[in-house]
Amino acid sequence: MDKQGTSLVTELARARGLGASHTGTEHWWVQRMTSLALLPLSLWFVFSIVSMAGANYVTVKAWLTSPCNAALLIALVLVTFHHAVSGMEVIFEDYIHCKCAKLTTIVVVKFAGALGAITCTVAVLKLALGG
């Protein structure tokens, strides 16, 4: 512990423990949580796709319209998009050095990711609810 008056970090900042990023470990933690969720979900998806190798549209549609598959698929889509966007965000933070280009890229990728996640969810719901 620094002697009083020698540290530039205020007592409040130390107590909150959020560090230079101002968000603490939240980004890191969410990345770990989404990766944990993706372990079973991604294996389930690969297994399902393999079991449908060479299947026609009717078979694939029947699989997609099953409520259980639709629910897992929406979970997979939402968690995957979140995990992908937060991963790409770190890569852009590391390799784009121009602050303006960095911010623009991150915002564009976040919006595109959100739109992709919503569109895929709508697609699954349309099938599941018999559109």
Partner: peptide
């Protein structure tokens, strides 16, 4: 992106 396209096309 490819997986999204696949899902959207199915719908």
């Amino acid at each position: 992106v490819l997986m999204s396209w696949w899902l959207i096309a199915a719908a």
